[in-house]
Design a protein around this nucleic acid. Structure first.
Length: 491
RNA sequence: CGGGAUGUAGCGUAGCCCGGUUAUCGCGCCUGGUUUGGGACCAGGAGGUCGCAAGUUCGAAUCUUGCCAUCCCGACCA
């Protein structure tokens, strides 16, 4: 029952945990900071993954796979990169265990120390660019458009289910280009792919933008991002796409001969989204009764619950439902007929609400007589009676309505939480009382950005793409500014 | 990693301060029956290394120390 879920108003963090755990998405594991993704949660991730994978391939990318381990020396070849990741790396130092005669069990065999330690990848730029050196000689070898689906490890101090785990699943695209223009175009293209996916499939509106220098990816020239807004008014970075310039090509000495037979360094991009998107999805849409999943990526789109007294009624319902299931499946709709006799309808209703199934159909003997079914929408919690004739088409349309409705609701919330602030007092007040994105002038310096973060915990989420140019004065220092940027407290 | 809190059956908990027979209760689970339009009811039953490890003691869920995990706040981050 919904009473098992902590209300958002009471404790937002606990509400989030309740949804993930009780909605059956994931569990804590025996390993610090690492979670078990349960079948329902993984099905959700698979749906996200499959759609993204399709989009990557549509835009000309191929999947490949690179090693989990990275030689320690690789990491330090790009100075900013190692600076950014060194503090959160898991390191393999030995390759063998041996029996421990004293205490039982096994111990690390000191004889089996690696010549060079291996880093468990926190991201794969280094191992991939070391490989690209072998793949690229001529401009004819370019571009290389490769993506990898993988797990990575970042030894985070504080973890949260899906939002920040020590090990997480993601995809990382790594492309190599002959020109800066082409690489930038790729970076922007993939940002668009992400934005399109998150908005149209996850129904989460995002703002596309560029990070300020201090929020940039370690080793990037420019970091583009999509920023989403959660229901508690905090922002969440949902995806990033980096223009890496020639930084990694220089670090790994990857040059190509151009048409004039001159050697040039290769231009690079990298881009990724992770299982964090699952967290974004949960926090963007759900309510105090449980998850609310958008139809396009919900593992289950429709559940049918029979209501009956005795086997005769059940048989009549079964016969009717069989046809409906067939029709729905023919339309590509993911449907389950839950005729499990061990739990009663009310229990099932609550359960599927908790799991966020977009549409529930309840059919009883009474309905069969009237040739109708009760249709309940998870997102609005409204119910209606619907004729069984043409019900599959109706459901298909309803799923689309739900998808659109969820996006519109999230968009309205987001848009009403982008607020301009023109004074420091106003800025602080908005952060504390309203939350969301605050559009304000900034003098462009890292010092001011850091000072604002220090005082308010708010960071510059992004400088929106196509940002209108507007003269103004920095919110903190009063120095001249040429455009507003978006601030928020963030996950 | 610093500060705070917590850890007793699958989940939620009582007991702990002040050590003492068989560790409390509810949900869930199993068996049988009755039920089924918003988390059913009756009867019977199973289920516990009291987070882990040392220590103190005749005796530890209870006292001491260490460790582990989770949550919250902070620093760090996708």
């Amino acid at each position: 029952m919904s009473k098992e879920i902590t209300a958002r108003s009471q404790d937002y963090a606990q509400w989030y945990n309740d949804l993930v755990l009780k909605g059956g998405l994931a569990d804590y594991s025996a390993v610090r900071g690492c979670m078990v993704i349960k079948p329902y949660g993984f099905a959700l991730w698979e749906n996200m993954r499959d759609e993204l994978d399709r989009k990557f391939k549509e835009t000309g990318h191929q999947n490949a796979y690179f090693p989990l381990f990275i030689p320690k020396s690789f990491l330090s070849k790009e100075a900013d990169h190692v600076e950014g990741f060194a503090k959160e790396c898991a390191v393999v130092t030995h390759y063998r265990l041996k029996n421990d005669p004293e205490n039982g069990g096994v111990v690390v065999d000191p004889e089996a120390k690696l010549e060079e330690e291996l880093i468990v990848r926190p991201t794969s730029e280094t191992i991939i660019w070391n490989t690209y050196k072998d793949w690229i000689q001529s401009y004819r070898d370019l571009p290389i458009l490769v993506n990898q689906w993988a797990n990575v490890v970042r030894w985070e101090m504080r973890t949260r289910l899906f939002l920040r785990t020590a090990e997480f699943l993601w995809q990382e695209g790594h492309t190599a280009h002959a020109t800066a223009e082409e690489a930038v175009a790729e970076t922007v293209q993939m940002l668009d792919v992400y934005a399109d996916f998150v908005q149209n499939f996850m129904a989460v509106p995002v703002i596309k933008g560029v990070k300020s220098p201090s929020e940039r990816f370690a080793g990037a020239v420019d970091t583009y991002c999509i920023e989403a807004l959660m229901q508690d008014g905090k922002a969440l970075q949902a995806g990033t796409s980096h223009f890496l310039g020639q930084n990694f090509a220089k670090a790994f000495d990857v040059q190509f001969s151009n048409k004039e037979n001159k050697l040039e360094y290769v231009w690079a991009t990298s881009w990724g989204v992770s299982t964090r998107l699952v967290g974004a999805l949960v926090m963007a849409h759900s309510d105090d009764d449980g998850l609310i999943l958008p139809p396009r990526i919900a593992p289950l789109q429709v559940v049918i619950v029979p209501i009956y007294k005795g086997n005769d009624q059940k048989a009549g319902i079964d016969a009717k439902v069989e046809g409906i299931v067939k029709e729905l499946k023919a339309l590509g709709i993911r449907v389950k007929y839950d005729d499990n006799d061990n739990s009663r309808p009310g229990w099932k209703f609550a359960e599927y609400e908790m799991k966020g199934v977009p549409v529930r159909i309840a059919i009883g003997a009474r309905d069969i007589e009237n040739n109708v079914a009760e249709i309940a929408r998870r997102d609005t919690k409204t119910k209606s009676s619907q004729s069984l004739d043409g019900i599959a088409q109706h459901i298909r349309q309803l799923l689309e309505e739900i998808q659109d409705g969820m996006f519109q609701k999230a968009l309205d919330y987001r848009d009403s939480h982008i607020t301009k602030a023109d004074s420091w007092d106003e800025f602080e007040k908005l952060l504390d009382e309203k939350g969301g994105f605050i559009s304000a002038h900034w003098d462009g310096t890292a010092e001011t950005e850091a000072a604002i973060k220090e005082r308010t915990k708010a960071t510059i989420r992004c400088i929106p793409l196509n940002n209108p140019q507007e003269a103004g004065a920095c919110i903190l220092t009063g120095k001249p500014s040429k455009e507003r940027v978006l601030f928020a407290r963030a996950y």
